[in-house]
Design a protein around this nucleic acid. Structure first.
Lengths: 216, 216
DNA sequence: ACCAAAATGTGAAAAATGTATCATTTTTGT
DNA sequence: ACAAAAATGATACATTTTTCACATTTTGGT
């Protein structure tokens, strides 16, 4: 004890990106009724090596045993999903609605409490039972309600403004889908999701493959 | 010439992930009417160092000059977005519709030609002018039409099957939003997008911050 | 209960990635 | 057109990340 990274420094992005995958597959294996999980089996599922899995777990402080329940519990603790997270979505467009209708993360304690939009047309309406409010009341709402995470699905030009409001409102994290790179700071954590980036990465890999093929 | 990675080996994932960001910001700067771009300026925008930018460009074979047009052209070539890409979306749910309504990538030569769903209710309908077809006709469609990229927005249980059909149909890449890890192989390139993973990563970073705060 | 086989935890080596340096080239101001 | 300032390309260096190796522990079969 005491010589792992958790004690002194922030974990690497590479590892932070693998943790959700571990969690996801452990949940699946638990649902499949598996009584035991090995590092090798988990590794195979996420497309990695058992050494990597063991090293990651070691870096995160180690897990007591590899029973599905223990692993899920332990990963939940690491990922901070043992407590409830209250979220609001900004933007009632297609993407906003897609996120709201995702049932996936409800089971992990993520709850969407309200949707905000600047279009008055939506006033009084609901999406999947969640009320749509006008974005002009966002400040007020954040002051009156505990909101942990703000989801931005607006156009790029207002994203920065929403970030400011979120900071003022004491929000802990922003999950940003607007095509701008919002920056994290010590007040707030930001996760930028650029959907089109992953399409371009795919296109790049396809192109690269063609490129290599032409070489031989 | 001849001593860069492009000649012999595949570029790293870290770099492949930065390339779209470079492209995105170059496009923005071009739109802003900038006459010239420096490595430092670009670095600042994507939240990195100028050394990293120069190193990346060097690794990719180098660019002639830093004029916005040249850079955009050069990055386009790397990312394989100088030619047209024809896409179909599988799944006409919220996420499918959100992707179809994204206007972002049309300008980069990505065109969505059809949507497939297994729900007969949709038959004959359209989304944003794109026809919804029954998924039973997918094989036929792929055989008759040039499709470069298949976008999967179905539930997890049918994703693997769609991948198989895509391979048989000669598709080059799969952009997968179903919550399973589909694997790339030499027939097809896969990009898995796990939306909830990025939420969990956000939650992890928030949690980690709290954790560190409690230490002092 | 014992032995064999398999899996884990850990430190160290190897590989990959990122940063710093500096000579050369390009730009800017006078 | 020239000198000074700034930016780039390429190498060398430092750090981070992954893989390897192996002693220790756990599991499974007889």
């Amino acid at each position: 004890m005491g010589n792992n990274a958790l004690d002194k420094k922030i974990l690497s992005d590479a590892l932070a990106r693998r943790l959700p995958a571990y969690y996801r597959h452990v949940c699946i294996m638990l649902a499949e009724g598996k009584q035991t999980i090995t590092s090798g089996e988990l590794a195979k599922r996420i497309g990695n090596t058992s050494a990597q899995v063991r090293q990651d777990f070691f870096t995160c402080g180690g897990v007591e045993n590899y029973h599905p329940d223990t692993l899920k519990e332990w990963l939940s603790g690491l990922l901070g999903i043992k407590k409830e997270h209250h979220m609001v979505v900004i933007g009632a467009g297609n993407l906003g609605r897609a996120i709201i209708s995702f049932k996936d993360f409800n089971s992990d304690g993520f709850f969407i409490d309200a949707v905000f939009d600047n279009n008055l047309m939506f006033d009084g309406m609901q999406i999947c039972g969640i009320p749509i409010l006008n974005v002009s009341s966002l400040d007020e709402y954040l002051a009156a309600n505990k909101v942990d995470i703000v989801v931005i699905t607006t156009p790029a030009n207002v994203a920065e403004e929403i970030l400011e409001k979120s900071i003022k409102g004491g929000v802990k994290g922003v999950w940003n889908f607007a095509p701008v790179d919002l920056r994290s700071n010590d007040k707030i954590e930001v996760q930028n999701v650029h959907l089109s980036d992953s399409l371009l990465t795919l296109s790049f890999r396809i192109n690269e493959k063609d490129f290599l093929k032409n070489k031989k």
